[in-house]
Design a protein around this nucleic acid. Sequence first.
DNA 1: CTTGGAAAGTCAACAAGGCTGACATAAACT
DNA 2: AGTTTATGTCAGCCTTGTTGACTTTCCAAG
Lengths: 171, 171
Amino acid sequence: MADRNATNMKGRGESLLFLTDDQLRRGIEAMFFAYRGFTADPDRILQDYGYGRAHHRAIHFINRTPGTTVNNLLSILGVTKQSLNRVLRTLVEDDLVDSRVGTRDKRERHLFLTPKGAGLERELSEAQRNRMRDAYRAAGPEAVAGFRTVLEQMMNQEMRRQYLDGGDGPR
Amino acid sequence: MADRNATNMKGRGESLLFLTDDQLRRGIEAMFFAYRGFTADPDRILQDYGYGRAHHRAIHFINRTPGTTVNNLLSILGVTKQSLNRVLRTLVEDDLVDSRVGTRDKRERHLFLTPKGAGLERELSEAQRNRMRDAYRAAGPEAVAGFRTVLEQMMNQEMRRQYLDGGDGPR
DNA sequence: CTTGGAAAGTCAACAAGGCTGACATAAACT
DNA sequence: AGTTTATGTCAGCCTTGTTGACTTTCCAAG
């Protein structure tokens, strides 16, 4: 429906710009709807547990980097400690996350998923991976490579800004 | 940093899967960070006006489809009428949106941006387009084509679900 | 022409998850 | 000893989502 111009450019490789405002607008909307789809499955699962996206994010990054400190998590997620703490507290209370006092620096708390937490993580990430896999499969390997490339550019933009602007935080 | 496997597959076109869980996880995280970057500029602009993302979304879709009804907007945005109404009310009060009673069906309200509203829309979409354009430029035309293809797959997933599941709405 | 129901709006109450500010504690650093 | 750092916590505010109940308008079918 929309990638006519883009596909016509394939193989030319020059930056002769097919980037009309309308093309960009479609990209913007695609991001909006795709992101909604992307979070839909986890959202439904979390609802059953009485959790929200904030819990999902915490669980995800604790799983990715076991033993991460609260401060680490804070800067990755870009929220205030009060906000994160609220979430973290319920996760510890519900025995999904284990918060261990640091050995070298006892002020720090190192965060780990409990078996129960790892279970929920698997459930959530499996749903999301299935989505992603289906989209990837339908789009094909070449498209996936391009997808990753563009997303990485968008990520870099934000990382760059965060450090250049002194990281005045998220809205 | 990540598309090694994917690029290796290029040209083979078969679905011999390069889709390891770790590759998928990286895609998932890229979506998270990219989306954050994607909304960062508008969020900053909106803050100055005392608005939030909900206002942005309303403004965007009214601009895209001038004269759209409240119900149309409702189903596109996937929120409750009470939630949308609160946003719409402030936009009308602040003279950014014009709500005209329908001529054929007078129960309907048709929504238009006022010149002032169009001004804010331009400011917001310009920031977002610049982001998108920069990412597209840096990634190149082929990557953009792939990006669009994958996003469209993800959009379709959600559209399909919405109608199959009877559209039980967003969380 | 009456009435049922759809479309839109309003009011009230609530929850999640952001935010700020202030303050407490313990540990580490100087 | 005094300062800084990491964390936690209390209180209060905002946005944006939710339900439920109710009204007004008005189309359309009986």
